[in-house]
Design a protein around this nucleic acid. Sequence first.
DNA 1: TGACATACATCGGAATTCTATGTATACTGC
DNA 2: GCAGTATACATAGAATTCCGATGTATGTCA
Lengths: 104, 104
Amino acid sequence: MNVKGSLPLLVLDALSKGSSYGYQIAKAIKARSGDVLSFQEGTLYPALHKLEKGGLIEAYTVTVDGRRRRYYRLTEAGARALNEERTTWFTYVQAVNALLGDAQ
Amino acid sequence: MNVKGSLPLLVLDALSKGSSYGYQIAKAIKARSGDVLSFQEGTLYPALHKLEKGGLIEAYTVTVDGRRRRYYRLTEAGARALNEERTTWFTYVQAVNALLGDAQ
DNA sequence: TGACATACATCGGAATTCTATGTATACTGC
DNA sequence: GCAGTATACATAGAATTCCGATGTATGTCA
């Protein structure tokens, strides 16, 4: 299950903890969320390309054991966007929880 | 701003507090959330039709002051769906917040 | 009479995600 | 040696969700 719109936030957050690459980001989000969050490759790679085009992340290629990895790191603009998206997220969640009676 | 996917939950929740109609539901969600949540009519009405087709809500028409209102009430299936969606929502939010470090 | 609010509805487009598929390499077990 | 699985990237097509625009119609207030 995924709420549409939260992937960029999760990717930016993941990269704020250190550079990483698509396959690893996907595994990390899935594992660290106890399988609650699980984005498919067909979702993740286009999202990474879009963030790169928007200048929020930048890429460099590394070959490890014959396999090519496309590492991404957060740009300054990406760090700012992360802060904004975090704020937006918490504001939204708080609003929904208030309507739901916040019974949890 | 809206996180896609949360509208059915918000509509079912609104109707769990009493029967209402589209225009009023939209106003209520917007007002009660302090303008944080705001769904347009082009979004809300199709969503109501879909929930009705799915048997989660049922409609009856009332005319007040010459204006027709299409009231909706929650069905039993709708009440069950609301409980499920609430649980799903809180599970999802908890997972995202955990990844974000829950700094709020 | 004109502006605004109420109340419904649909159409077209944009954005996001999933499923499926394809390419290529490395490792493990048989 | 070969099959299966994991790693690692990518794209195409379809479904879903939402918004903006537009349309219809009525009531109220200045």
